[in-house]
Simulated scan of single mutants.
Amino acid sequence: MSRRHARSAAADALLPWVLPAIVLIVWQWTASMELVSAKLFPTPLMIAQAGWKLFASGKLGHHMGISLQRALLGLLIGGGLGFALGIANAASKTAYRLFDTTIQMIRNVPHLALVPLVIIWIGIGETSKVFLVALGVLFPIYVNTYHGVRNVGSELLEMGSVYGLRPRELFFHILLPGALPSIFVGLRYALGVMWLTLIVAETIATNEGIGYLAMNAREFMQADIIILSIILYALFGKLADLLAKALERRLLRWNAAYRA
């Protein structure tokens, strides 16, 4: 029985990677037929070789580290602000009336359309890139945090008050746990926005980051490095989503819907 369970678990773990593997095989075969120039449509093996050369030289690790730093800093700033505003506006009618209309107006402006203005205001340094990422992740986390807190049943809060819980205890034992499923939905959506924003932000004049690799490779018609950069963004996005799901399962073990 345990062996059958182990085989089933292994199959479940491998199943999501079947389609990407098929795509790679078809891609390798199609590119190997040389229907298109290898310089324009390199094979996965050529891309892997280019990636290995960059990694061995230390350049790939450096640029990946810079991109991760920008992404995480923007997520911490924008996500923290969105979380705080969501809690405040859900808990206080005065805060909601004061801030929500302005937040919703700004939310409906595509933040990537602000790139020219951000360059004029902030410049082309690291601050502008982090600012764009923070702005992108703020709104998904704000909306879902607000929604999650507002949807915690009032009867639970009344029950907590009857048992003598103080406001701080009501927040940490009832409001926050009840809002976590919605907050994690916002976080996972924000992670996707984070990488999308970073791709655009790293096209602003820079000499570091994965986006720089792609822009520099474009100048020299290095399609393999351009595709490598795109794949790295995709892998980072998948890894971030896996970490968010693992954290979600850990913090929501008490919820039957999140048990294995």
Score class of each variant (00 low, 15 high):
V133D: 05
G86N: 03
L68T: 08
A84F: 12
L75W: 11
Y146A: 14
G186A: 07
I120W: 10
R107C: 06
V185I: 13
G74C: 06
G78M: 01
N151F: 02
F139Y: 15
G58F: 13
L187W: 01
L156M: 10
I124K: 06
I174T: 12
L85T: 01
F139L: 00
E155K: 09
L98H: 07
L81F: 14
L76V: 11
W52C: 06
G192K: 03
S154E: 15
K53D: 15
A134E: 09
G80D: 06
V137S: 07
G148Q: 11
R166M: 13
G79F: 02
A134Q: 06
R168A: 15
V130K: 01
A95M: 13
A95I: 12
F131Y: 06
V115G: 00
F131K: 00
F99N: 02
T101Q: 15
T101P: 08
A84S: 14
A88W: 13
L117P: 03
L75S: 08
T145S: 11
I141L: 11
D100R: 03
S67Q: 05
T101W: 14
P167M: 06
E155W: 03
R70S: 04
G160V: 08
K129C: 03
V162G: 07
V149A: 08
N108I: 09
W121Q: 10
V133Q: 09
G74D: 07
Q69T: 12
A88V: 04
A88T: 10
H173T: 03
N89A: 13
G74W: 03
G78Y: 00
L187P: 01
S57I: 10
A84H: 03
L180P: 06
P167T: 00
K129Q: 00
W121G: 10
R166P: 01
S182L: 12
I120H: 05
L76G: 07
F83V: 10
G65T: 12
I120S: 10
V185Q: 09
P140D: 05
K59D: 08
K53I: 02
V185D: 10
L135K: 10
A88S: 13
G86Y: 01
G164N: 03
V143H: 02
R150Y: 06
L75V: 12
G136A: 14
I103Y: 07
F171Y: 08
E155Q: 11
R107I: 06
A134N: 01
T94F: 15
L72P: 07
A113K: 00
T145W: 06
H111T: 11
D100C: 00
T127P: 00
I183G: 01
Y163L: 11
G86E: 07
